[in-house]
Nucleic acid binder design. Structure first.
Lengths: 350, 350
DNA sequence: TTGAAAGCGCTAACAC
DNA sequence: GTGTTAGCGCTTTCAA
């Protein structure tokens, strides 16, 4: 048992040609099936993936390329992907881009011949990035971020606009007018669409936010922290804050905590994407939620359909969000934070 | 550009033999290096991994097999692994076992010929599992759980005993005597060692726990939830609870929250493994912390050393834990939870 | 239904 | 330093 047994070893033990064994392995009918099965068992034979791959041009693997696996959203997505691919006998490669377009480009370039398909959350939505994706020649499903306007790739997104609108309507309904927004990068799908969706509702409600109230950040915890600090430093801080993703929201909560700002007493908070601990926070956090593992499962299903030639034209799936009301929002109260109370009063009375 | 270019295409464009191009690709010195580089550039050539693999018997891939990627600890570990392997040009396959020995066995059987090495958190520590691991013939680094007493595998663990002891000493120091323990499965390394470490300190302090106070659970959130409920249902519930991992601890907090039990007023809580949101909980959670991404980074380093033949005998690395004190523990107070207060008082006075 | 043989793309002797 | 060639383990014509 020095070297791994090959198909020839199986053939000779069974007293057949390797061609017959190969046919058996393909599941085709063979007279001597049991003898072959026995030999395989005895030798503990498994076909070498590399040899198969070389012959077939197929790998049985797919790549999942996400910004950061420690983001609970992507961890859930990957779990969904992995569970389906296990059932379908696909193997998954995992890559973190760290939101870095260069890293992403390097990874993609390395993927040719290694995977049959890619599930990708692009770090870079530039036209160059689109070209790079097409250049791989590998079927791609876009996850959570859409690029390439000409319906180039399959995608599985969520209704970011509607999600953000749910948050905005809720806050407006509670009576907030002086609202802070912490958005992600506007050159990413979720960054831009959540931003616009949120503002569109305010707009419809006749609420115009001062530029100081609109913080464009980076979807990272530290970015959320800093943005929240800036909002709190305003002469008249907002009575509510909408934070466009989970990581930034954690940063915001940390800032609020550090600054001893009471939620929702002084400021209301709505996050985008649920957190496992959201209900255990103090107060339990109100968020825009969405299916996560399902999004991953759908991504891989979409990809496998494409690989099996079962789907012809490009498919874009959009999942619904939902507002999960907990206790981090309340009507704006007279306790609101102000640097200089008189200003507020005069403005209210004026 | 119909089919991917091969090394022969490069050779013919450069007017050379494929052997020379191959040598160039190995980084060996070749007169016509620039001509080759040009041809490669022009054709956008990349060597086919399958062909290389078939020839070399090597894959450039490693498998990371963990119970559950949505567990923040494993997500962090995987991130550490991925970041190093990217630098070293290795690709990583990810698998979830869901703590299921059968799944694990199936995965391992599928790995031969597909990866050069495995980083594994075994779901199953039985002797049969050890045999299965050895049978793969693939170098393995054990992550967080040790199996096979005869120093069979490299491993990267943490000092669970000391970690649990830190928690126990802390609780004892605060004055707790009536302590609840929620342990993981005792047939896993972290389950058993944390359990024993914790109890050993109590033992040394002359504190013997009633069997009802020792809950052996499953490292899952629901298990923690149920165990906490059982502890709270006792005639005289404990004044403090030690929870042996992060997921169960979330369950415990949820149970405490649902039952409206005040922490640390009525019950103190110490968890094992830090959580990203630990400081934002109410109250901020005291835990036993440890390096997580580092543990992953060390695991892959250990594995790569082994693959490069740089390490001879088996290496076991043990990382230190540390007590991170926040606000979820206090001295036991007279507010303690009791079903029937008279019992307590009489026992205190008797 | 089965076997012989060629070939997937690359690397490593072995000659020159 | 370079070319020729065999072969890694498998699948797939093509004949039988």
């Amino acid at each position: 048992m020095s070297n791994a047994p090959t198909i020839h070893d199986v053939a000779s033990v069974a007293g057949l040609s390797s061609a017959t064994v190969s046919r058996y392995l393909q599941g085709r009918h063979v007279r001597t099936a049991d003898r072959i099965a026995e030999a395989i068992q005895e030798l503990n034979f498994r076909p070498t993936p590399a040899a198969r791959s070389l012959k077939s041009g197929t790998t049985g693997s797919i790549a999942v390329v996400v910004p950061d696996i420690t983001n609970p959203f992507f961890a859930a997505v990957v779990k969904g992907v992995e569970s389906i691919s296990r059932q379908e006998d696909y193997h998954i490669f995992l890559y973190n881009t760290e939101e870095d377009g260069l890293r992403e480009a390097a990874i993609l370039a390395d993927l040719r011949g290694r995977v049959d398909g890619i599930i990708l959350t692009p770090a870079d939505e530039s036209q160059a990035a689109v070209a790079r994706l097409s250049a791989t020649g590998i079927p791609i499903v876009l996850l959570d971020r859409d690029i390439g306007d000409d319906a180039l790739f399959d995608s599985i997104l969520i209704d970011n606009v509607e999600g953000a609108r749910q948050a905005a309507s809720y806050l407006l309904g509670l009576g907030h007018r002086d609202i802070g927004v912490i958005s992600g990068p506007l050159d990413t799908t979720p960054g831009r669409t959540r931003h616009e969706g949120f503002l569109s509702v305010l707009d419809e409600g006749g609420v115009i936010l001062a530029p100081t109230h609109i913080q464009v950040s980076d979807f990272r915890e530290e970015g959320g922290y800093q943005s929240a600090l800036r909002l709190l430093a305003l002469e008249i801080p907002p009575t509510a804050i909408f934070v466009a993703n989970n990581l930034m929201c954690i940063g915001v909560l940390r800032a609020l905590h550090d600054m001893r700002v009471e939620v929702p007493g002084e400021v209301s908070v709505v996050g985008f994407d649920d957190l496992q601990l959201a209900e255990l926070l103090s107060p339990p956090l109100t968020v825009i939620g969405r299916p996560m593992e399902e999004q991953g499962a759908l991504a891989i299903r979409l990809l496998l359909n494409r690989l099996n030639g079962r789907s012809a034209k490009r498919r874009g799936i959009v999942l619904d969000t939902r507002l999960i009301i907990r206790d981090s929002c309340a009507a704006p109260s007279p306790n609101r934070l102000v640097k200089n109370p008189t200003i507020v009063r005069s403005s209210h009375h004026g």
